[in-house]
């Protein structure tokens, strides 16, 4: 357990990092959620270890697990949800306005509300060149 749980957290966070480094907005949001899962578990592991005493409910028989990390994680879960919700709605809005879900392109646009084909300056690509046109879309 002392090895398995850290390993699971590492898997969650590593996958989250890889997704956040991707260019599609949705992957970024999902990646952040995965990191949040991992972070919540790691607070528990770091604070209380893998102890399997009784849950901190005083009407059961002790000894009890440490309640403090649990309280902290509870806050973290809720705040994590707030972040995800905000990011999700923001992404939908950004996508509607800009017609792109490419993170880097959103950064590079001169005027994000301007559609890419409305660019006057042909010297300035609306999609960063490293991506190229090989965008395959599936639903």
């Amino acid at each position: 357990m002392a090895i398995l749980l850290p390993l699971l957290v590492a898997v969650l966070i590593g996958a989250g990092v890889y997704l956040v480094l991707s260019r599609a907005l949705i992957r970024l949001i999902i990646g952040l959620s995965m990191i949040a899962y991992g972070a919540n578990l790691s607070i528990l592991l770091a604070g209380a270890g893998t102890a399997q005493d009784a849950p901190p409910l005083l009407n059961t028989q002790g000894p009890y697990n440490d309640p403090l990390p649990q309280a902290l994680i509870l806050t973290a879960i809720v705040i994590g949800f707030g972040t995800t919700a905000l990011l999700l709605v923001l992404s939908v809005r950004a996508y509607q306005a800009t017609r792109t879900d490419h993170v880097q392109e959103l950064v590079e646009r001169l005027d994000p509300l301007e559609a890419p084909d409305a660019y006057a300056d042909p010297e300035r690509p609306s999609v960063s060149p490293e991506v190229g046109p090989d965008v395959e879309g599936t639903r």
């Binding site: 002392a2 590593g14 790691s42 592991l45 770091a46």
Partner: peptide
Amino acid sequence: AFTVFVALVMVQVPL
């Protein structure tokens, strides 16, 4: 992921 793993293995100390 490796860093997270190492850190968690090292700091599993009860508060």
